[in-house]
């Protein structure tokens, strides 16, 4: 197992190098001069521009800029944002918020998706199954910002159950509504996947054997059907994490959540190379770690993986 983890970590290195290079290149290729844009309508004196250019290494060729950036990262220095604040400080302030939001969203989509999928699968073709399918289709067809605005309007304004925007410090109760909105993106996929997986497992011979042993249905469903059905769902979760981050960017904007998504969005608009690259690098890193964790979880769920070395 230890060897496996080491191997996976080593595999992550070229992935990180590749993604940072690509992102750095794309930010570099963005049209417009970020330094000039910084001053808006005003025209700053040329020597100020020169100074700023040198400070952010914009006077160097692309490849040199990239290596300076890489070298800094290895020294733990993520650079300084245009606001003068170190990027690592911004990360420290925003990441906990987004992690809380993402964790809540994963929790909601897992609980709702798996329960709905399980019931649909066990009562295939029933009324519940049919309504769940219609619901999922509606949710899949709606873009997330529509879901977000509708939720904000109904639950935030009309019913006033939740606050429409997230307050400072992003307390959990304020994050519930954005998290539910975020969860709707993958809820449909998870419930459909669980349903298919449950139907598949229920037809397996070992389920019949479990019944022939005299086990009651209340034991067969969680122990012999649900656990086996979760294996593909867990795998999906890893892939889904990317979708979640994209969704977070939009949702955080709408609910004014002071998280990574909103900050990243603003940095992109401003063409703030160092901030964008640093944020995305951390996101890629988290994505890789989540995938590794999911693979390890997979081994916990399926002993065949655990021992197949």
């Amino acid at each position: 197992m230890a060897g496996y983890i080491v191997r996976r970590v080593l595999q992550a290195i070229p992935v990180l190098l590749g993604t940072t290079f690509l992102i750095y290149f794309m930010v570099f290729a963005m049209p417009g001069d970020p330094i000039v844009a910084l001053f808006g309508d005003k025209t700053p004196p040329p020597q100020v521009i020169e100074q700023l250019r040198a400070r952010y290494h914009f006077d160097q060729p692309f490849i040199v800029q990239y290596f300076i950036f890489l070298g800094n990262i290895f020294r733990g220095d993520l650079g300084v944002a245009f606001s003068g604040q170190p990027v690592s400080e911004i990360l420290g302030a925003t990441f906990p918020v987004t992690l809380r939001l993402a964790a809540l969203a994963v929790f909601f989509e897992m609980v709702a998706g798996i329960s709905v999928g399980l019931i649909s699968g066990l009562r295939k073709g029933g009324i519940f199954d049919a309504s769940a399918l219609v619901m999922s289709l509606i949710l899949i067809s709606l873009p997330i910002f529509v879901v977000a605005f509708v939720a904000q309007f109904i639950f935030g304004i009309q019913l006033a159950w939740f606050r429409t925007t997230v307050g400072s410090g992003a307390p959990i109760q304020d994050l519930i509504l954005p998290a539910i909105v975020l969860a709707t993106i993958s809820f449909a996929q998870i419930s459909r996947l669980t349903r298919a997986s449950v139907i598949d497992t229920e037809g397996q011979d070992f389920v019949r054997t479990a019944a022939s042993k005299g086990l009651p249905r209340t034991r067969i469903v969680p122990v012999h059907i649900l656990r086996n059905s979760l294996i593909p769902v867990v795998t999906y979760l890893a892939v889904d994490f990317g979708t979640l981050m994209v969704g977070a960017t939009v949702t955080e904007g709408i609910f004014n959540v002071p998280g990574v998504g909103r900050t990243l969005y603003q940095a992109i608009i401003r063409g703030e190379g160092p901030t964008v690259v640093a944020f995305v690098t951390i996101m890629v890193l988290i994505y890789l770690v989540v995938n590794l964790l999911v693979d390890l979880l997979y081994a916990v769920l399926d002993p065949r993986i655990r021992y197949a070395k």
């Binding site: 042993k213 005299g214 086996n228 769920l301 399926d302 002993p303």
Partner: peptide, 25 residues
């Protein structure tokens, strides 16, 4: 039936490969 299965009627299935749940010991 749940009480009868196992207790009164034991069942040995056909294919030993597919009749044990792979995720439990």
């Amino acid at each position: 039936m749940e009480a009868i299965r196992g207790r009164k009627i034991g069942f040995v299935p056909q294919d030993p490969m597919s009749n044990l749940n792979p995720v439990w010991s």
